[in-house]
């Protein structure tokens, strides 16, 4: 979200990749329990956290996302047995690379949220949105490349 008008309060743009079986269902439960979190969070449904290609995250940052969160089933509870373990390893590598590129470590996150954890979903998103708001607008990935 481009904020050019300095009078306007900064509203971050947050992309959340949620696995279909646990975290997307957890988001649904947060909804049916009316547990609010900021509208800045936009959810993309993926079958499993292991479907999240690091490219998707790079693309989100390139297009102006201020924070990206990947949510999957708890370790050991993956619907596909082991997908979340792959996600965890891939993201650990990607996030340290992003950190190196100048995208603060706090802007990226992996969380395990089960289908029964509506409250955790809402709390996580509230807390993440607050962190991103505090960090302020992200410099776009393409801008990072152009500078220096």
């Amino acid at each position: 979200m481009q904020v050019n008008d300095t009078n306007k309060e900064f509203r971050p743009l947050i992309v959340a990749f949620c696995c279909n079986w646990c975290s997307y269902a957890g988001a649904d439960l947060a909804g049916s329990s009316r547990l609010s979190y900021p509208a800045d969070v936009k959810i993309i449904r993926v079958p499993c956290s292991c479907r999240v290609n690091p490219m998707f995250i790079l693309r989100a940052f390139q297009r102006g996302a201020d924070g990206v969160i990947i949510a999957g089933c708890h370790p050991g509870d993956c619907h596909y047995t082991s997908g979340n373990y792959f996600a965890r390893r891939r993201m650990t590598l990607l996030f340290s690379m992003l950190d190196y590129l100048g995208i603060e470590r706090e802007r990226t996150r992996v969380e395990w949220i089960s289908a029964a954890e509506g409250a955790k979903f809402s709390a996580t998103m509230n807390e993440f949105a607050e962190t991103i708001s505090r960090l302020g607008e992200n410099r776009r990935l393409e801008d990072l490349r152009c500078k220096e």
Partner: peptide
């Protein structure tokens, strides 16, 4: 079962998941 673990692992981008293709998610 359509988890998509292979799609991300594939170094040449040959593997894709029907219904959740890389282009679709992008």
């Amino acid at each position: 079962q359509g988890c998509g673990a292979c799609t991300v692992t594939c170094p040449s981008g040959a593997m894709d998941l029907k219904g959740f293709t890389t282009r679709q998610i992008m």
